[in-house]
Simulated scan of single mutants.
Amino acid sequence: MWKALSDRNWALLKTHLSDECIYLDMPVGPAAAAKGPEDIVKRLKIGLEPLASYENFPGLLVANGNDAMYEHHEQWHWATGESAVLQFVTVHRVENGKVTLWKDYWDMGALANHAPPDWMDNFASADMSWVFDATGLL
């Protein structure tokens, strides 16, 4: 799954997610989650598709039954020359070989401090049909 994400291979990424998978960025919170492979990919594309390059670097993976924590980092590069290294801890729940829960913990300030000035404008004009309120479900 992580290789597919790093390659921005959206079709392959979807095959790793259950139909009921919930994805959320913890800095934003559960009211702006995405649910299901199609909407999760819509959400991920907002941040990752406009990048000139993107790469996920592996780190420590700890698992306990169906639950896993993955410490990793990503490098983001914009066509305008800006770049950022983002540190992540991701929590997954995996059932029957598919991710059913995906929570990303990261520092939004680290991204905002290195992104181009118009970075937030991409979110303001993006398709937000993916928004799922997961409040109380996690």
Rank of each mutant, 00 (worst) to 15 (best):
A115P: 06
P30W: 09
A112W: 12
I46H: 02
A126Q: 01
N56H: 11
L13W: 08
V85H: 12
K45A: 03
D121M: 15
V99G: 00
V91N: 12
L12C: 14
H16K: 11
W106Y: 13
G97C: 01
H92N: 09
W2T: 10
N122H: 15
Y70P: 08
F132R: 01
N96M: 05
Y54N: 04
L13Y: 06
P117G: 13
T90D: 15
S125M: 12
R43L: 07
G29W: 00
N9R: 04
A32G: 10
A124W: 06
L17E: 05
G109S: 11
T100E: 05
H73N: 06
L5V: 14
A52S: 11
K45V: 07
S83E: 14
L61R: 04
G109Q: 14
G36E: 00
D107Q: 03
H73A: 00
D25S: 13
D104C: 03
G29L: 03
L61C: 10
H72P: 04
N9W: 00
K3V: 09
F88S: 07
D67V: 00
L137W: 15
V131Y: 00
D39H: 11
M108T: 13
K3C: 11
A79P: 07
W102T: 02
S18D: 03
W106C: 08
I40F: 04
C21N: 10
K3L: 13
H77N: 13
M69V: 15
E55Y: 05
T80C: 09
M1K: 07
A34T: 02
D107H: 05
M128L: 08
N56Y: 11
L13F: 06
V89L: 09
D7Y: 12
N56E: 14
T135Y: 03
E38V: 07
F123T: 01
E55W: 09
Y105G: 03
L17Q: 03
H16T: 12
I46P: 02
Y54I: 05
P37C: 00
K103L: 13
G109Y: 08
H114D: 08
